[in-house]
């Protein structure tokens, strides 16, 4: 579990990261609610976008390992690649979960109308899994740290718009609405819709399962071992 512990150590050393990570959820808590859309307060609606950014920032630790060559040392150490990745991902997940908890229960304390805060938390966690997996796959495909980051930003923008976070899917033409299903952000928006309006738990489970499948697919892509 050394890798796991040291991820925390490294991220806390970086003060900008720390500020970024704690401040944003707090800001999100206090953002107002739109009417009739989005169904949740703006902060909560946009949290999905934020989570994608956080994912790529966190995943950059693995990127730094690859670019600096530490992976070479680790590859000959008695540490399996699976163990290495899972320790990293677990650490990232914990960091993100913390933020989700702050966001959701902070919101509850503040009095935001979250309808079903616990299920919202579950949704956010499922989504975070997918986001982390996407970030992992992204850095596996794009080596250069800066290039990957800027590319990811464009990707996030695309995915947010087309997925229906910035603009509701109901306003899309038919074919665009169909395409929206490809994006994990769509499923987050769907989940959020369900939290406010839905009643069949099966539908909610369905949304989560889809998000987990996304996580699975992208994790498989991102699990390639790269030594350079």
């Amino acid at each position: 579990m050394t890798v796991f512990r040291f991820v925390f150590l490294r991220s806390f050393r970086n003060t900008t990261n720390l500020i970024f990570l704690t401040l944003f959820p707090l800001v999100c808590i206090f953002m107002p609610q739109g009417d009739p859309w989005p169904v949740l307060p703006y902060g909560y609606q946009l949290f999905g976008v934020f989570l994608l950014f956080v994912s790529i920032r966190l995943a950059s630790y693995i990127q730094v390992d690859r670019m600096s060559g530490v992976v070479k040392r680790l590859s000959i150490a008695p540490l399996s690649h699976a163990s290495y990745l899972s320790q990293h991902l677990l650490a990232y997940l914990l960091i993100i979960m913390l933020q989700c908890v702050i966001l959701v229960y902070g919101g509850v304390l503040y009095g935001q109308p979250l309808i079903q805060p616990f299920l919202l938390l579950i949704l956010y966690i499922s989504y975070s899994l997918a986001a982390l997996a996407i970030a992992l796959a992204w850095i596996t495909l794009f080596r250069n740290k800066e290039l990957a980051f800027f590319g990811f930003m464009s990707f996030v923008f695309l995915v947010s718009v087309l997925g229906g976070i910035i603009v509701p899917v109901s306003m899309f033409p038919e074919w665009l609405a169909r395409i929206a299903v490809l994006f994990p952000t769509y499923w987050l928006a769907e989940g959020q819709l369900w939290i406010v309006y839905g009643n069949e738990l099966g539908d909610f489970l369905f949304v989560n399962v889809v998000l987990w499948l996304y996580a699975l697919v992208f994790m498989i892509i991102g699990s390639t071992r790269k030594l350079r």
């Binding site: 697919v217 498989i220 892509i221």
Partner: peptide, 8 residues
């Protein structure tokens, strides 16, 4: 997912 597994 299966296609990715086969790739990997």
């Amino acid at each position: 997912a299966l296609a990715c597994l086969r790739w990997r």
